[in-house]
Design a protein around this nucleic acid. Structure first.
Lengths: 236, 236
DNA sequence: ACCTGAACACCGTTCAAGT
DNA sequence: ACCTGAACACCGTTCAAGT
C-alpha cells in the first residue's frame, strides 16, 4: 500500500484535468482502450475514483478531452506552408490526411467522438480545421465547396482509420468461394498488383485503398482560377 | 408477472438466433442502442438472460449478427442491373452508397463492427460485396484497382454515416470566432450556397459533403477501355 | 439440448463526511 | 474546493441444478 491520503482537501490538488488526460493516454497506449476505466485512471493518479468527478463530468467528457489531445498529433505544418504559397495544397492535404489517419487508427474509440462532437470546446481541433480551410483558400475551388471537401476528406479518413486495425483475413471466405466469384476475382487481382505484402498480421487492404481514395478526393485542387460551380458568386 | 417457465428444457425452443436478432433490432429502433442490453433482449423474449448464451457466444457475436442483418437493408438491385449492362455503373454505385449510408446512419454502433469484421460468417455482407465487384467488372477500371475502389467508397460511407447523426452546432465556435477566420469563412460560404436548410435539429453539414465526396470517388468509371494505371499487367 | 436462478466480477456515478 | 469511503444501480457472463 502506498501511503494513503488523509480524508479532507489536500494542500495542493492531487488531480488536474491534464493529469487525468495524460494518465488515460498512457493506459490506452500500454493496455488498450478496453483497459481504460475510471478506476484504472484513479489508481494511476493514486486517488479514489470519485476524486476524478471533481474535475471532469464523467467518462464522456474524458473522451472529448482525449480526442482534442490526440488531435495534437495531427500534422498541420504542411498546411501552413501551403497557406503561405510554399507548397502545393494537394500535397499538404495529403500529408495532413496521412497523419490524421495514423493518429485515429491508434485511437479507434475516439473516431465516433471526433466525428460527432461540436468543435466548441476543442481548441486544437479548431486549429486543425482552420489550417485546412486556410490552405483550401489558396485553391481554385469555389469557397462554397471548401467545407464540403474538408468534411468529405474527414469522413473518408475516419472510415480508413478503422481499416488499419482490421484483421488480415477480412476478405477470406473459405467455404462458399464459388458463391462470390466477382469478389474472389477482385481480391486476386488486388494481390497480383503486389499489395498483399503487409507486415505480419496487418491488414493488407488498408494502405492501397486509402491512397487511391485520397487521390480521388484531392482532385481539382492546385488550379489558379475558380472552378465552374453550380452557385454563382452573386447568388445567396 | 407473465406465467413463469418451468425450470428444465422446454418442449419447443423458446429462443432462436433469429429471435434474438429481431428482438435486438426492435429494442434499438424503439429505445436506441444505449438500451440494448442482454437483460432487455431476454425480457422481450420472456426468458432469463442466461438463456441467450445457449444461442450466441456473447454480445460481440450479437453485434456481428445485427451487422449482417441490417446489411439486408442495403440496396443491391441497381448494382445487379448495372452488372447486366442495363444501368450506368456509377449511377448504380451512387444508389448503393446512399442506401448504405442511410442504413448505418441508423445503426452507428455497428459501424466499427462492419468496418473491421471478417466477412466469413456474414452471408448478406458477402452478397453485397459480390454485387459491387460484379458491377465494377463492367468498368474500364483495371481489375487490380477494383477492390481498392470498393474499400475507399466504404470507408467514406462509414465516416459519412456518423455525420448524419451529428448535432447541428458542430461548427459553432461562439467565442473565439476571430481565432478561426478561414473556417468561419468556409462555414459562411457553405451556408450561402443554400445548404444550411436541414430539417429541425438535423446536421446541415452531412448531405452536401456526402454527395460531393461521392462524385469524386465515382470518377473514372463508365469508360469502356481500361484506364492507364501505375502497375503494368506483366509485373507482380 | 436448453432452460432457471443465483452468483460473480466488474462498470460508471453519487454523495455524505471530512478538512 | 477537493479529497475518501461506502453505496448504488447497473453491466455481461458463468454455472450448477433441473427436465
Amino acid at each position: 500500500m502506498p501511503t494513503p491520503r488523509r480524508r479532507g482537501r489536500p494542500l495542493s490538488p492531487a488531480v488536474t484535468r491534464e493529469g487525468i488526460c495524460r494518465a488515460a493516454l498512457e493506459i490506452a497506449a500500454e493496455s488498450g482502450y478496453e483497459a481504460l476505466t475510471m478506476a484504472r485512471i484513479a489508481r494511476r493518479l493514486a486517488v479514489a475514483p470519485s476524486a476524478l468527478y471533481n474535475h471532469i463530468r464523467g467518462k464522456d467528457e474524458l473522451m472529448a478531452l482525449l480526442q482534442d489531445a490526440v488531435m495534437d498529433g495531427v500534422s498541420t505544418a504542411e498546411l501552413e506552408r501551403a497557406a503561405r504559397g510554399e507548397m502545393a495544397v494537394s500535397e499538404a492535404l495529403r500529408a495532413w490526411a496521412r497523419s490524421y489517419r495514423a493518429v485515429f487508427a491508434a485511437h479507434p474509440p475516439l473516431i465516433p467522438v471526433i466525428a460527432t462532437m461540436p468543435i466548441a470546446g476543442a481548441p486544437r481541433t479548431q486549429e486543425v480545421y482552420e489550417a485546412v480551410c486556410a490552405a483550401l483558400a489558396r485553391t481554385g475551388l469555389p469557397p462554397g465547396a471548401h467545407l464540403a471537401r474538408v468534411i468529405a476528406l474527414e469522413s473518408f479518413i475516419y472510415g480508413s482509420a478503422y481499416d488499419v486495425g482490421a484483421p488480415a483475413d477480412i476478405f477470406e471466405v473459405a467455404d462458399a468461394a464459388e458463391a462470390v466469384p466477382a469478389l474472389q476475382h477482385a481480391v486476386s487481382a488486388f494481390r497480383d498488383d503486389g499489395h498483399a505484402a503487409a507486415p505480419s498480421g496487418a491488414n493488407p487492404y488498408a494502405d492501397a485503398p486509402f491512397e487511391a481514395g485520397l487521390d480521388l478526393l484531392l482532385a481539382g485542387l492546385d488550379t489558379a482560377s475558380p472552378q465552374p460551380g453550380p452557385a454563382s458568386p452573386s447568388s445567396g
